[in-house]
Amino acid sequence: MIQTINLQKLFATEEVETTALNGISMDVKDGEFVAIMGPSGCGKSTLLNILGLLDNPTDGEYNFYGTAVARMTERQRAQLRKGSIGFVFQSFNLIDELTVYENVELPLLYLKTPADERKQRVEAALERMAIMHRRNHFPQQLSGGQQQRTAIARAVVAKPKLILADEPTGNLDSKNGEEVMKLLGELNDEGTTIIMVTHSPYDAGFAHRIVNLFDGKVVTENFHV
């Protein structure tokens, strides 16, 4: 379970100070599927980055599965991030120089997973995302949908407790987008917690709860059943 209390994030340049997050308090329970929505510049991605331990808040508390992480160093965060969070990006962010298989394998390498187990898990993830037949291709040789399926396979291969998805369908056509959303839904059904930033009300419909942000604050929360 993750919990934030009064998260603040300020971006300061020499002349201007911008408040990206202004007192965000929210809980996400295990196995929940939360969508974060809001207009451009409302702080969605900033919040996601903090939740994903990629960034620290300027102020406030963040409790990540029982660990207070708000003041951790980059090094400590990296340690904690490994294996517990999977990321899915709008622009897929696959590494062009690695094949589908190698991209998916990468998190396990950083986790120092033994070779035979690694092979087994990568293959399982590829099967799961129906991308096995493309295992030796490079990202540029794949369609957008295939690339995003690879990215999801990479996000789940380490069996993280939490998947953070930043507009996962933003670069996809509706058919491929639908497919990706279904995959996320399935993962959630199997117990993975998912927090997703999206502009699309349709995608948000897959979530249990929608958190609406505006100017760095939570304005409404809608619950689905």
């Binding site: 994903g52 990629l54 980059e74 090094r75 990296a78 340690q79 991030r81 490994k82 294996g83 990321f87 962010n93 696959l94 590494i95 990468l106 998190p107 950083y110 986790l111 990479r154 380490a158």
Partner: peptide
């Protein structure tokens, strides 16, 4: 960035 998000350390 990708590598860091996947758990790589500096």
């Amino acid at each position: 960035g990708v590598r860091k998000s996947l758990g790589a350390q500096s």
